[in-house]
Amino acid sequence: MIHQILPVGPLQCNCSILGDETTREAMVIDPGDDIPRILAILARHSLTLKQIVITHAHIDHIAGAQQLKRLTGAPIFYNQLDLPLVEMMDIQAGWLGIETPEVLPPDDHLADNRTVSIAGLTGTVIHTPGHTPGSICLHLPAENLLLAGDTLFAGSVGRTDLPGGDARTLITSIHDRLLILPDATRVIPGHGPSTSIGAERESNPFLQAKP
Protein backbone atom coordinates (compact mmCIF):
# COMPACT_ATOMS: atom_id res chain seq x y z
CA MET A 1 0.00 0.00 0.00
CA ILE A 2 1.09 3.52 -0.78
CA HIS A 3 0.21 5.86 2.11
CA GLN A 4 1.32 9.46 2.24
CA ILE A 5 0.15 11.88 4.94
CA LEU A 6 0.08 15.52 3.93
CA PRO A 7 -0.73 18.21 6.51
CA VAL A 8 -2.86 20.74 4.62
CA GLY A 9 -4.34 24.17 5.23
CA PRO A 10 -3.93 26.67 8.05
CA LEU A 11 -4.90 24.09 10.70
CA GLN A 12 -2.58 21.42 9.24
CA CYS A 13 -5.26 18.77 8.76
CA ASN A 14 -3.76 15.34 8.07
CA CYS A 15 -4.83 14.47 4.54
CA SER A 16 -4.15 10.82 3.68
CA ILE A 17 -3.44 9.63 0.15
CA LEU A 18 -3.92 5.86 -0.07
CA GLY A 19 -3.01 3.90 -3.18
CA ASP A 20 -2.65 0.31 -4.32
CA GLU A 21 0.78 -0.45 -5.76
CA THR A 22 -0.59 -2.93 -8.30
CA THR A 23 -3.81 -1.36 -9.58
CA ARG A 24 -2.65 2.25 -9.09
CA GLU A 25 -6.11 3.20 -7.84
CA ALA A 26 -6.29 5.69 -4.97
CA MET A 27 -8.54 7.31 -2.41
CA VAL A 28 -7.93 10.62 -0.67
CA ILE A 29 -9.16 11.25 2.86
CA ASP A 30 -9.86 14.79 4.10
CA PRO A 31 -8.52 17.05 1.32
CA GLY A 32 -9.05 20.25 3.28
CA ASP A 33 -6.69 22.40 1.22
CA ASP A 34 -3.51 22.40 -0.88
CA ILE A 35 -5.08 20.52 -3.78
CA PRO A 36 -2.08 21.09 -6.13
CA ARG A 37 0.16 19.28 -3.63
CA ILE A 38 -2.31 16.38 -3.40
CA LEU A 39 -2.45 16.14 -7.19
CA ALA A 40 1.35 16.17 -7.35
CA ILE A 41 1.55 13.19 -4.98
CA LEU A 42 -1.03 11.28 -7.02
CA ALA A 43 0.96 12.02 -10.21
CA ARG A 44 4.28 11.08 -8.61
CA HIS A 45 2.94 7.61 -7.84
CA SER A 46 0.95 7.33 -11.11
CA LEU A 47 -2.28 6.98 -9.11
CA THR A 48 -5.83 7.42 -10.42
CA LEU A 49 -8.14 8.91 -7.81
CA LYS A 50 -11.36 6.91 -7.42
CA GLN A 51 -12.86 8.19 -4.15
CA ILE A 52 -12.73 11.23 -1.88
CA VAL A 53 -13.61 10.34 1.72
CA ILE A 54 -14.42 13.02 4.31
CA THR A 55 -14.30 12.09 8.01
CA HIS A 56 -16.49 15.06 9.01
CA ALA A 57 -17.70 18.34 7.57
CA HIS A 58 -15.49 20.86 9.35
CA ILE A 59 -13.99 23.30 6.90
CA ASP A 60 -10.37 22.23 7.48
CA HIS A 61 -11.23 18.67 6.36
CA ILE A 62 -13.67 19.28 3.50
CA ALA A 63 -12.86 22.67 1.95
CA GLY A 64 -10.85 21.33 -0.99
CA ALA A 65 -13.03 18.31 -1.79
CA GLN A 66 -15.16 19.92 -4.48
CA GLN A 67 -12.11 21.30 -6.27
CA LEU A 68 -10.45 17.88 -6.17
CA LYS A 69 -13.62 16.27 -7.55
CA ARG A 70 -13.82 18.83 -10.34
CA LEU A 71 -10.22 18.07 -11.39
CA THR A 72 -10.37 14.28 -11.11
CA GLY A 73 -14.02 13.24 -11.40
CA ALA A 74 -13.81 11.25 -8.16
CA PRO A 75 -17.02 11.18 -6.06
CA ILE A 76 -17.16 12.63 -2.55
CA PHE A 77 -18.38 10.48 0.35
CA TYR A 78 -19.28 11.64 3.84
CA ASN A 79 -21.96 11.07 6.48
CA GLN A 80 -25.10 13.09 5.75
CA LEU A 81 -25.66 13.83 9.45
CA ASP A 82 -23.05 16.56 8.94
CA LEU A 83 -25.12 18.40 6.32
CA PRO A 84 -26.09 21.10 8.89
CA LEU A 85 -22.37 21.91 9.15
CA VAL A 86 -22.15 22.19 5.37
CA GLU A 87 -25.04 24.65 5.42
CA MET A 88 -23.07 26.87 7.79
CA MET A 89 -19.83 26.78 5.80
CA ASP A 90 -19.83 30.59 5.62
CA ILE A 91 -19.83 30.72 9.42
CA GLN A 92 -17.04 28.15 9.56
CA ALA A 93 -15.02 30.24 7.10
CA GLY A 94 -15.55 33.22 9.36
CA TRP A 95 -13.96 31.33 12.27
CA LEU A 96 -10.73 31.13 10.25
CA GLY A 97 -11.06 34.42 8.40
CA ILE A 98 -10.94 32.76 4.99
CA GLU A 99 -13.13 32.73 1.88
CA THR A 100 -16.13 30.41 1.95
CA PRO A 101 -15.32 27.31 -0.14
CA GLU A 102 -17.79 25.52 -2.38
CA VAL A 103 -19.05 22.51 -0.42
CA LEU A 104 -21.95 20.39 -1.68
CA PRO A 105 -23.93 17.42 -0.32
CA PRO A 106 -22.11 14.09 -0.65
CA ASP A 107 -22.33 11.94 -3.75
CA ASP A 108 -22.96 9.05 -1.37
CA HIS A 109 -23.61 8.61 2.34
CA LEU A 110 -21.04 6.98 4.63
CA ALA A 111 -23.31 4.93 6.88
CA ASP A 112 -21.94 2.91 9.79
CA ASN A 113 -20.30 -0.38 8.74
CA ARG A 114 -20.32 0.58 5.07
CA THR A 115 -17.44 -0.82 3.02
CA VAL A 116 -15.34 1.72 1.14
CA SER A 117 -13.01 0.17 -1.40
CA ILE A 118 -10.81 0.67 -4.42
CA ALA A 119 -9.12 -2.15 -6.30
CA GLY A 120 -6.65 -3.57 -3.79
CA LEU A 121 -7.73 -1.66 -0.67
CA THR A 122 -10.82 -2.01 1.51
CA GLY A 123 -11.94 -0.02 4.54
CA THR A 124 -14.93 -0.13 6.86
CA VAL A 125 -16.74 3.00 8.03
CA ILE A 126 -17.08 3.35 11.81
CA HIS A 127 -19.60 6.03 12.79
CA THR A 128 -18.16 7.86 15.81
CA PRO A 129 -20.42 10.82 16.64
CA GLY A 130 -19.36 13.34 19.26
CA HIS A 131 -16.94 15.72 17.58
CA THR A 132 -19.70 16.20 14.99
CA PRO A 133 -22.93 14.21 14.52
CA GLY A 134 -21.63 12.62 11.33
CA SER A 135 -18.01 11.97 12.30
CA ILE A 136 -16.64 8.71 10.94
CA CYS A 137 -13.38 6.79 11.16
CA LEU A 138 -12.12 4.55 8.37
CA HIS A 139 -10.68 1.19 9.45
CA LEU A 140 -8.49 -0.79 7.07
CA PRO A 141 -8.02 -4.06 8.97
CA ALA A 142 -5.72 -5.67 6.39
CA GLU A 143 -3.37 -2.69 6.78
CA ASN A 144 -3.78 -2.46 10.58
CA LEU A 145 -4.74 1.18 10.06
CA LEU A 146 -7.38 3.55 11.43
CA LEU A 147 -7.95 6.99 9.92
CA ALA A 148 -9.57 8.63 12.92
CA GLY A 149 -10.49 12.13 11.75
CA ASP A 150 -10.91 14.40 14.77
CA THR A 151 -12.40 11.70 16.99
CA LEU A 152 -9.16 10.45 18.59
CA PHE A 153 -5.72 12.08 18.86
CA ALA A 154 -2.40 11.10 20.36
CA GLY A 155 -3.02 11.78 24.05
CA SER A 156 -6.28 13.63 23.44
CA VAL A 157 -9.74 13.51 21.88
CA GLY A 158 -11.74 15.75 19.56
CA ARG A 159 -13.13 19.02 20.81
CA THR A 160 -16.86 19.15 21.47
CA ASP A 161 -17.49 22.88 21.94
CA LEU A 162 -18.41 23.54 18.30
CA PRO A 163 -21.95 23.16 16.85
CA GLY A 164 -23.09 19.53 16.98
CA GLY A 165 -20.42 18.47 19.44
CA ASP A 166 -21.21 16.34 22.49
CA ALA A 167 -18.54 15.26 24.98
CA ARG A 168 -20.31 12.25 26.45
CA THR A 169 -21.22 10.93 23.00
CA LEU A 170 -17.62 11.33 21.84
CA ILE A 171 -16.13 9.36 24.74
CA THR A 172 -18.77 6.65 24.32
CA SER A 173 -17.94 6.41 20.61
CA ILE A 174 -14.25 5.96 21.35
CA HIS A 175 -14.77 3.37 24.08
CA ASP A 176 -17.42 1.36 22.24
CA ARG A 177 -16.17 1.57 18.65
CA LEU A 178 -12.42 2.27 18.65
CA LEU A 179 -10.87 0.80 21.79
CA ILE A 180 -12.22 -2.62 20.79
CA LEU A 181 -9.78 -2.65 17.84
CA PRO A 182 -6.44 -4.50 18.17
CA ASP A 183 -3.80 -2.71 20.25
CA ALA A 184 -1.37 -2.62 17.33
CA THR A 185 -3.78 -0.69 15.11
CA ARG A 186 -1.98 2.41 13.85
CA VAL A 187 -4.09 5.55 14.33
CA ILE A 188 -3.76 8.54 12.00
CA PRO A 189 -5.60 11.45 13.68
CA GLY A 190 -7.00 14.43 11.85
CA HIS A 191 -4.14 16.55 13.20
CA GLY A 192 -0.78 15.86 14.80
CA PRO A 193 1.30 12.70 15.21
CA SER A 194 0.17 9.13 14.71
CA THR A 195 -0.41 6.79 17.64
CA SER A 196 -1.88 3.34 18.29
CA ILE A 197 -5.05 1.98 19.87
CA GLY A 198 -2.98 0.28 22.58
CA ALA A 199 -1.11 3.45 23.48
CA GLU A 200 -4.32 5.47 23.75
CA ARG A 201 -6.10 2.80 25.77
CA GLU A 202 -3.20 2.73 28.22
CA SER A 203 -2.29 6.38 28.64
CA ASN A 204 -4.81 8.79 27.07
CA PRO A 205 -6.01 10.83 30.09
CA PHE A 206 -9.43 11.42 28.52
CA LEU A 207 -10.14 7.69 28.28
CA GLN A 208 -9.23 6.41 31.74
CA ALA A 209 -12.78 6.51 33.08
CA LYS A 210 -15.60 4.88 31.13
CA PRO A 211 -18.55 7.15 30.30
Rank of each mutant, 00 (worst) to 15 (best):
S196E: 06
E99A: 13
Q92L: 09
L68Q: 04
S46M: 00
P36D: 07
E200G: 05
P101W: 08
S203D: 09
H109R: 03
W95M: 03
D34K: 09
M1E: 08
P205T: 00
P141K: 07
P36G: 01
D107C: 03
R37D: 06
L207G: 10
A74T: 01
G32Y: 14
L83D: 02
I76M: 03
I52S: 07
K50P: 00
E25A: 01
D20N: 15
T151C: 15
D20V: 11
D112H: 15
L178E: 09
Q208I: 04
L68Y: 03
D150N: 15
D82F: 14
N113S: 09
L42T: 09
G192W: 05
V103E: 12
A184Q: 12
H175S: 02
C13Y: 06
G97E: 09
D150C: 15
I76S: 08
I52E: 00
S173C: 12
G9P: 07
V116A: 04
T55G: 14
G123A: 13
G190D: 10
V103Y: 12
I54E: 12
T48L: 05
I59K: 10
R37P: 08
P106L: 01
D176R: 14
L110A: 11
P31D: 14
L140G: 04
Q51Y: 02
L152F: 11
T122E: 12
I197L: 05
H109F: 06
T100A: 01
L6K: 06
N79T: 03
E200N: 14
Q66E: 13
E202Y: 08
D108S: 04
N14L: 06
L170P: 15
Q12N: 13
A154G: 03
G130L: 05
L178H: 13
P211Y: 08
F77Y: 15
V103N: 13
A148D: 11
I52N: 08
P31C: 13
H3L: 14
P7M: 01
T128W: 10
F206V: 03
N14A: 10
L39R: 13
M1V: 09
G73M: 05
V125M: 08
R37L: 08
N113T: 00
A209E: 15
S196Q: 00
T124R: 15
N144E: 11
A93N: 06
I54C: 10
T22N: 11
G94W: 08
D176Y: 12
G123R: 02
